[in-house]
């Protein structure tokens, strides 16, 4: 199986690479269009700020390529947000795979960003949660969120319920960092690779 990790400056890909190393899966870290198109699985990771990340993707034409991919794609954290239509983070137009808005958390009582381990409740038919409990703890670090919508496949609650996972066609996404979410996160990645 060929696994490609999308290469762009704003992402913290090392954690994803180490997660794949730990489960013994080889991968290619690349921004090459041909390799990304023919890979069996594509992982689109990210840590960062939306407008900077989109600028890096545009430089390489990846903003046009990624939405056209046909194989299973797993986007995490900022990767998930960049697949949405628009983000309130510096008023950024994103790739629009998921027809939803990314909003900023607003709370007078709870701290922002939402940092730490929180529990998610997954839909029963969510294939990435195969073999896991209906409720699992995973690791979040984010100030922006996707509201619950018809594409939501797992919900987390902070300030209000929000999308912990999204799914549409071949695009799977997690707001949390599966790559550093302990054994639960590892199983989610393994489930994605088994799709």
């Amino acid at each position: 199986m060929e696994i490609a990790i999308v290469k762009y400056n704003a992402g913290n890909v090392a954690s994803v690479m180490y997660a794949l190393d730990r489960i013994g899966m080889p991968y290619t870290w690349t921004d090459d269009e041909a390799i990304l198109r023919q890979a069996d699985k594509v992982i689109f990771p990210g840590v960062g700020e939306a407008s900077t990340a989109m600028a890096h993707l545009k430089e390489k034409g990846l903003d046009l390529l990624i939405p056209q991919l046909k194989q299973p794609v797993l986007a995490t954290c900022i990767g998930m947000q960049l697949l949405c239509k628009h983000s309130e983070e510096n008023d950024t137009t994103c790739m629009g795979v998921f027809d939803v808005e990314v909003k900023r958390f607003q709370s007078n009582e709870l701290k922002i960003p939402h940092v730490g381990w929180n529990s998610i409740q997954a839909n029963q038919d969510n294939p990435l949660m195969e073999g896991l409990k209906k409720e699992e703890f995973v690791y979040f670090v984010h100030s922006f969120y996707v509201p619950v919508n018809p594409l939501t496949t797992a919900v987390c609650e902070y300030v209000q319920p929000f999308s912990a996972m999204l799914h549409q066609d071949n695009f799977y996404a997690a707001q949390f960092h599966a790559e550093i979410s302990g054994m639960a996160g590892q199983r989610i990645i393994e489930n994605f690779l088994a799709l």
């Binding site: 913290n12 890909v13 090392a14 954690s15 180490y18 997660a19 730990r22 840590v47 690791y139 670090v141 960092h177 790559e179 550093i180 979410s181 302990g182 054994m183 996160g185 590892q186």
Partner: peptide
């Protein structure tokens, strides 16, 4: 397989980039 932070002697964007690329999460 859990998050970790690195500190000590960091004084530039380049320093941070190197550490994130080496596997640090923060």
């Amino acid at each position: 397989n859990i998050p970790f932070t690195v500190g000590g002697g960091i004084s530039s964007i380049q320093d941070v980039s190197v550490l994130l690329n080496a596997g640090a999460d923060k």
